[in-house]
Simulated scan of single mutants.
Amino acid sequence: MNVVEKIITLEQQESVHLDPDRLGGLCTQLGDTNAVDVLCRTIEELALRLSNCERFWRQRNWVDLRKCAKSLVAISDQVGMTALARVAGDVVNTVDTGDVVATGATLSRLIRVGERSLTAIWDQQDLSV
């Protein structure tokens, strides 16, 4: 019998990219108070859509998964979450190719990047950038 002496656990960490110019532009365009309000509503919407993407994946609902991921691209790009927008676009591409395994892997990455992006925005003490 073989005995495993050492088990290695891989921890996947994703870097997030927030575009400070985009966030600053929101503050300039809307004013600090309105920009914070928009960002708070956007965070809630992104969290909901990330959850919906995961639900659509479990249901194997490719049409709605694609639509939901596509909406994540647009919303996250508007508030400067460039990494989230890019990975959501990757999910759309894998759904389009019909590669279920790649879609699952890319969706998992989307969830990780999404959680880190939302936390990064939320944790900023000064949203006016």
Rank of each mutant, 00 (worst) to 15 (best):
M1T: 13
M1S: 15
N2W: 09
N2C: 06
V3F: 13
V3G: 14
V3C: 11
V4N: 15
V4E: 15
I7H: 14
I8H: 14
T9Q: 11
T9A: 10
Q12E: 12
Q12W: 01
Q12R: 12
E14A: 12
S15N: 12
H17A: 14
P20M: 06
P20G: 07
P20I: 01
D21H: 10
D21V: 08
L23Y: 04
G25Q: 12
G25H: 11
L26V: 03
L26Q: 05
C27R: 10
C27H: 06
T28H: 10
T28E: 14
Q29T: 11
Q29F: 06
Q29D: 13
L30N: 03
L30T: 01
L30I: 00
G31V: 00
D32K: 06
T33S: 12
T33I: 05
N34V: 01
N34G: 03
A35N: 03
D37K: 11
D37Q: 14
T42H: 12
I43T: 13
I43R: 15
E44W: 02
E44M: 09
E45D: 14
L46C: 09
A47D: 15
A47L: 04
A47Q: 14
L48D: 15
L48N: 15
R49L: 12
R49C: 04
L50N: 13
L50W: 07
R55D: 13
W57S: 09
W57Q: 10
R58C: 06
R58K: 13
R58W: 00
Q59Y: 05
N61A: 08
N61Y: 00
W62R: 02
D64L: 02
L65H: 05
R66M: 08
C68Q: 14
K70E: 03
K70D: 09
S71M: 09
S71T: 12
L72W: 01
I75K: 10
Q78K: 09
Q78L: 03
G80T: 00
M81A: 15
M81Y: 07
T82G: 07
A83Y: 08
A85H: 06
A85D: 11
R86H: 15
R86N: 14
V87R: 09
V87Y: 09
A88E: 04
G89M: 06
D90S: 12
D90C: 05
V91S: 10
V92P: 12
V92M: 06
V92K: 07
N93P: 02
V95L: 00
G98C: 01
D99F: 01
V100A: 09
V100E: 04
V101W: 00
A102Y: 00
A102I: 00
T103E: 01
T103P: 01
G104P: 04
G104A: 04
G104N: 05
A105N: 13
L107T: 01
R109H: 08
R109Q: 13
I111P: 08
G114S: 05
G114M: 02
G114D: 06
E115W: 03
R116G: 03
S117V: 03
L118K: 05
T119G: 06
I121S: 05
D123C: 08
D126F: 07
D126R: 08
L127V: 06
S128V: 02
